[in-house]
Lab assay of single mutants.
Amino acid sequence: MQRVNMIMAESPGLITICLLGYLLSAECTVFLDHENANKILNRPKRYNSGKLEEFVQGNLERECMEEKCSFEEAREVFENTERTTEFWKQYVDGDQCESNPCLNGGSCKDDINSYECWCPFGFEGKNCELDVTCNIKNGRCEQFCKNSADNKVVCSCTEGYRLAENQKSCEPAVPFPCGRVSVSQTSKLTRAETVFPDVDYVNSTEAETILDNITQSTQSFNDFTRVVGGEDAKPGQFPWQVVLNGKVDAFCGGSIVNEKWIVTAAHCVETGVKITVVAGEHNIEETEHTEQKRNVIRIIPHHNYNAAINKYNHDIALLELDEPLVLNSYVTPICIADKEYTNIFLKFGSGYVSGWGRVFHKGRSALVLQYLRVPLVDRATCLRSTKFTIYNNMFCAGFHEGGRDSCQGDSGGPHVTEVEGTSFLTGIISWGEECAMKGKYGIYTKVSRYVNWIKEKTKLT
């Protein structure tokens, strides 16, 4: 034993070699072989497995989906700052455009905790909710729209109204504003409101030439003092309507412009014939205590009207009353817009006519005020429907199939267009061939041609 100890002390290297040989010859039971080890760690190889990531292109799944990435790591994937920024906006807080917040056709661009709407022409605001041009839906104005110097929408209202708090709607500024039905039992019968379409306001006024200088022999019209197929109006439903009495009662109609003036057809009036105007009328054979009678003290036909040349060209006249009318729910003026808007309103496509005229061709006159909704007829169809001249200051309205029309005794009465609950004068009943005849239409004086003249002559002093 002493000898062994001496050998170990003198030859430590020998001992180490012996131990190493023993270990190498022993069977290893701690580690699995290569094949079995792979069965336990069965993990798919990654895209760049075996390579240094710093030297390969980034992978979106590896960089940002398996674990949260930084902007720089995302930049490695896209290799483009702009594309990385677009991805980053949604990656950080989701897609803010998912709810489609942009209105009126706006395009949404996502941002971090926010979004941006790219608005089409005519709109602005956070969600493109603000109209900035009158060309689109009248700028959301209830009545009139004008573009300011910086191309912003400025709404306005006709006389007797003021802008509401929203700067879009119009509200009454006087007790009985024009064009409004205020009798409670008839307010439910107000005709369907007309909503502004998209309009090209630059070209809204037709490029028409008034044929002022045409000389033409007097034409022989049949029954051209021209509501057939209409309905009984309720008291106060058309408070701007008046009836004219002269040699015979209810020979023509008219509309209240203001307390002192009536507008009617020029062919209705004769110099030297006494005319009485009755406002607030409903049943011409009954006294309903809503009527107001006034005498006409002055007749002003349009300066281009000449019955000797043509009885229905420039067929418009103004009547001055001896005493002002007292405005109330049964006696209310009709609204008159400017030339541009009167023309736009007419193009809405349908209007209402009213009167006490004959209820059928050569038949009896109506006792109760009649009204009828009539569609506008395109000019080409209008011209083809008659052998008589249709001037540019006239328009056609009615039904091709016949059966409904204005008729004798309705002449001078109103053709009105309702705009968001307020009625505007767009025409004056003038003439036609018979009444409600198939293929024939009622012919009306186009008020847009005469609004400046009306307003100039009827100013209240």
Rank of each mutant, 00 (worst) to 15 (best):
Q2K: 09
Q2Y: 13
N5Y: 09
N5I: 13
N5P: 08
M6V: 10
M6P: 05
I7L: 10
M8I: 11
G13S: 13
L14Q: 03
T16K: 07
T16I: 07
I17R: 02
C18P: 02
L19Y: 05
G21R: 04
G21E: 04
L23F: 14
S25P: 07
A26D: 00
A26K: 00
A26E: 00
E27N: 06
C28A: 10
T29L: 15
V30M: 14
F31M: 15
F31K: 10
L32S: 13
L32N: 15
H34Y: 11
E35W: 06
N36W: 06
N38A: 10
N38K: 13
N38R: 12
K39N: 08
N42Q: 14
R46Q: 14
G50Y: 08
K51W: 04
E53C: 04
F55C: 05
F55I: 13
F55A: 15
V56C: 06
Q57L: 09
G58I: 07
N59A: 11
E61K: 08
E61T: 15
E61F: 05
M65E: 13
E66A: 07
E67A: 13
E67V: 06
K68W: 08
K68F: 06
K68N: 15
S70F: 07
F71D: 15
E72C: 03
E72N: 15
E73W: 04
F78N: 15
F78I: 13
E79Y: 09
T81S: 09
R83H: 15
R83W: 05
R83T: 13
T84Y: 04
T84W: 04
F87N: 14
K89S: 09
Y91V: 10
V92T: 10
V92H: 10
D93F: 06
G94C: 04
C97W: 01
C97T: 02
E98C: 07
E98P: 04
S99W: 07
N100S: 11
C102M: 00
C102Y: 00
C102K: 01
L103H: 13
G106M: 02
G106R: 02
S107H: 10
S107K: 13
S107T: 11
C108L: 02
C108F: 01
K109W: 05
I112N: 14
S114F: 06
S114L: 10
S114I: 06
E116N: 14
W118Q: 12
P120R: 11
F121Q: 13
G122S: 05
E124G: 15
G125K: 03
L130H: 12
D131Y: 11
C134A: 03
N135G: 15
N135W: 09
N135D: 12
K137H: 10
C141R: 00
F144Q: 02
A149F: 12
A149M: 09
D150H: 09
N151A: 07
K152N: 14
K152L: 11
V153T: 15
V153I: 11
V154C: 05
C155G: 00
S156N: 05
C157R: 00
T158V: 11
T158I: 09
T158E: 05
L163C: 02
L163D: 00
L163W: 02
E165Y: 09
S169M: 11
C170M: 00
E171F: 10
P172S: 09
A173C: 05
P177G: 03
G179F: 00
G179R: 01
G179I: 01
G179V: 00
R180I: 04
S182Y: 10
V183N: 11
S184T: 09
T186P: 13
L189I: 15
T190C: 04
T190R: 06
E193L: 13
T194D: 11
T194E: 13
T194I: 11
F196Y: 14
Y201S: 09
V202H: 07
V202T: 12
N203K: 08
S204C: 05
A207M: 14
I210D: 13
L211C: 08
D212L: 07
D212V: 10
N213K: 07
T215H: 05
Q216L: 11
Q216R: 06
T218N: 10
Q219I: 10
S220D: 12
F221Q: 09
N222S: 13
N222A: 11
D223R: 10
F224W: 11
F224E: 06
T225Q: 11
R226A: 06
R226E: 12
R226S: 07
V227L: 08
V228R: 11
G229W: 13
G230H: 12
E231N: 12
E231S: 05
D232V: 07
D232T: 11
A233Y: 06
P235I: 08
G236S: 04
P239F: 01
W240M: 00
V242L: 02
L244R: 00
L244A: 01
N245G: 03
K247G: 03
V248Q: 08
F251C: 05
C252D: 00
V257M: 03
N258R: 02
E259P: 08
E259I: 04
K260I: 04
K260W: 06
W261E: 01
V263K: 00
T264F: 01
A265L: 02
A266Q: 02
H267Y: 02
H267I: 02
C268H: 00
G272R: 02
K274D: 02
I275F: 04
T276R: 03
T276Q: 07
T276M: 06
A279H: 00
A279E: 00
A279P: 00
H282L: 08
I284R: 10
E286S: 10
E286I: 10
E286P: 06
E286R: 07
E286L: 10
T287F: 09
E288A: 07
H289K: 12
T290I: 06
T290M: 07
R294H: 01
I297N: 03
I297R: 05
I297W: 03
I300S: 03
H302A: 03
N304E: 11
N306S: 04
A308V: 11
I309M: 11
I309G: 10
I309V: 13
K311I: 07
Y312N: 07
Y312D: 02
Y312C: 04
N313M: 10
N313W: 08
H314Q: 03
I316S: 01
L318D: 00
L318F: 02
L318G: 01
E320C: 02
L321S: 00
L321D: 00
P324W: 02
L325I: 03
L327G: 02
N328L: 00
Y330L: 05
V331R: 00
T332F: 04
A337K: 00
D338C: 06
N343K: 04
I344L: 11
K347C: 03
K347H: 10
F348W: 09
G349L: 04
G349A: 07
G351M: 02
Y352S: 10
Y352H: 12
Y352T: 05
S354W: 03
G355Y: 14
W356Q: 04
G357D: 10
G357S: 14
V359S: 15
H361P: 15
H361S: 11
G363L: 08
S365Y: 13
S365Q: 15
A366D: 14
L367D: 09
L369Q: 07
L372W: 14
V374S: 04
V374E: 01
L376Q: 06
V377F: 03
D378H: 07
D378K: 06
D378I: 03
C382W: 02
R384W: 04
T386D: 05
T386M: 15
K387W: 05
F388Y: 15
F388V: 15
N393Y: 06
C396Q: 02
C396K: 02
C396Y: 01
A397F: 02
G398C: 02
H400A: 15
G403A: 10
S406V: 05
S406K: 12
Q408Y: 13
Q408L: 15
Q408S: 15
G409L: 06
G409P: 12
D410A: 07
D410M: 13
P414R: 01
V419Y: 14
E420M: 14
G421A: 07
S423I: 06
F424Y: 12
L425P: 00
T426L: 01
G427V: 00
S430Y: 03
W431S: 11
W431D: 09
G432L: 03
E433H: 14
C435S: 04
A436T: 14
M437V: 15
M437D: 13
G439F: 04
G442D: 03
Y444I: 08
Y444P: 00
V447M: 10
V447C: 03
V447H: 00
S448F: 02
R449E: 14
V451T: 05
I454P: 00
E456Q: 12
K457F: 07
K457M: 12
T458K: 02
L460C: 09
T461R: 08
